[in-house]
Design a binder for these strands. Structure first.
Lengths: 199, 199, 199, 199
DNA sequence: GATGAATGAGTGTTCATTCAT
DNA sequence: CATGAATGAACACTCATTCAT
């Protein structure tokens, strides 16, 4: 369904993300979202079937932004390691600049709205990254493990550490991010630090 | 006079954990919890001051169970690596046997109910583990990084992979758990694979 | 969009007055008021912030009606005594015709909702009467006592006797009202019955 | 029904009066009263049928104390006027010393619990005063009006002014009490100030 | 298309009263 | 007799959603 005023749609999505990030799912009523978007609650129902649909679409909207940044920066690297490093830094910057995006993503991911089909859709959107991993496995650069393990040690840590940063229990300067990245890389790399310490 | 029945308290805590794990915080009303425990909502208020107190106490109840298992199995290992491995396996088994505990812990940890004092209390309960990590750092076995990074790469992955297992996107047999653990260890170990493969 | 309906506001105020007059504050639930006004309890909250606001506004609504009648009739008299007499009769008629107004006023005034600012507002609304009393004091017509004493002997008796009338223990015909008024006047007049009966 | 421990009965009545005076009827739960009397809510139901009975009996208990003081001091006067004056002062002192009695009486009197039969019982308890008034009427000392009018101008003002005193809007020193009493007396006296100002 | 009003179903919580001991 | 536990019914209030304009 095409709507005349896409600005209103975006305004509602942005309002949703901001309100949920700040007040959580239970603390965010439809009325509050509509008000934050300067619209009537009734108007919201012209653009979204119901609250569930709104929350779900907001998740897709957030996910797409995250994936876009991730892919873009990954592709700038000369190799997998460098790509991943650039991706890490970019996502960290993004998480700190727009914490509501990360917080919304986290909140949604850990809520009962998160479903397998959404997970699958996102993995499809990030196909470029998946493929690069497959290549790297084949080339013997990273461990030949399932993607879920790569996600576990490469992506989840970013979300987790950004949240820690926002809480104040992690300092996200370049040094610490690199240190953390090194750990992620060590987790997935096949032949880690092959011999940098050897003559 | 009837005596306060500890079974009822436990029943309410268990019901809380099960309901929240299944329906999330917003989807879990006091009425639903009471019903699941075969009690009147009013009775719930004899055992817990309010919903917040109930959720918080349920978190402590879950945390204590998790920490107990973690510590007990960690201490069985001869060294840090072996201890961590045993801990991983034990927590995995637990997560799969009682997924609602893990799910509740996750949900609570990412909710607005999670406060610094609860975090602190749990870290205090798990002091043995913290100390072991500090010792290992001093002995040069693991990287000299902040605890938040160890948590990120050692503990979070367990939660995440258990969830994946329950979703069906990870197979939690001993081989795969060991594979995953290897990744966690590589992330935190200082001098990984020092060169077992070298002549 | 439907427009906010002032009829509904008035209906809610009237229902509040009637219900509280009949069942008292504690016996009057929001649900009962809404039902008496043929509205949903939820609708009530569109027109009033909460129960307190509703009760308070109902009090102002009642007070304004009482004060309007009081002032209007008082001003018709040629002097203070005559004004007061007309006021007494008018208020009596009103109290008997709309006992719920008086009962609500009484109940509210003696409840914990009665606050100094409401008292002050009402005294301000009734400024004309206050000023007339001050003038009469200066002219030596009535005793130079605090307003609270005038209220005690001039206004409270009306409320009390109306209530008695409704109970059946006072007969509010013109003769008895005049008799009662005479007592009130004797209480406050400086030079009572100066000698109307003297040649 | 006779109860073994009359202390508990009295403790409950006193607790009721104190709690209701402080928190009002709606703010006073049975549990609160029982706690204030150091008893269990269940025990309360051994001594009183239900909350209504408790509140009603507390009213009688208060009324009896007030009437006792009123009668005792009235009888000390040489004539009606002096008796009334002594009564006024005594009741004022009592109201200020034990405001919870007066407040309870007021609150109850203006609540929906106040019924005609309670009113009648109290008038019966105060028969001595009623009779004295009848005598005074016959002697031409006070106006030949219904008792309800005497009550209106002699007793209600005391309650009202004590409450004002507790609120701070009336100063109950001997001078002001006498001034107020003079007004009450002028209201009811037949031939007041027979003509002190006349030559 | 857009909206503020309207509401049934639900929220967390309290309470007068009864029950089991 | 005395009691803390237990609860059905009620409370004030909110919310996702629909209605009438």
């Amino acid at each position: 369904m095409r709507h005349r005023d896409d600005n209103k749609r975006i305004a509602l999505l942005d309002a949703t993300i901001a309100q949920v990030a700040e007040h959580g799912f239970s603390g965010t009523s439809v009325a509050r979202i509509a008000k934050a978007a300067n619209l009537s609650p009734a108007t919201l129902y012209i653009y979204f079937a119901d609250k569930d649909a709104l929350l779900k679409e907001a998740f897709l909207y957030v996910s797409d932004q995250l994936i876009e940044v991730a892919v873009e920066h990954f592709l700038r690297g000369q190799d997998v390691r460098e790509g991943m490093r650039l991706e890490w830094h970019a996502l960290f910057r993004m998480g700190i600049a727009q914490p509501e995006l990360f917080r919304y993503h986290e909140t949604f991911t850990h809520s009962s709205w998160m479903t397998a089909d959404l997970q699958a859709r996102n993995e499809h959107e990030a196909a470029v990254l998946m493929n690069a991993f497959e290549d790297a496995k084949r080339e013997g650069l990273i461990k030949p493990v399932a993607f879920s393990l790569l996600e576990t040690f490469v992506y989840r840590p970013i979300y987790h550490l950004v949240q820690r940063t926002l809480q104040g229990s992690f300092i996200a300067d370049d040094t610490h991010i690199d240190q953390a990245f090194e750990m992620a890389w060590d987790a997935v790399a096949l032949c880690k630090k092959p011999s940098p310490k050897q003559p």
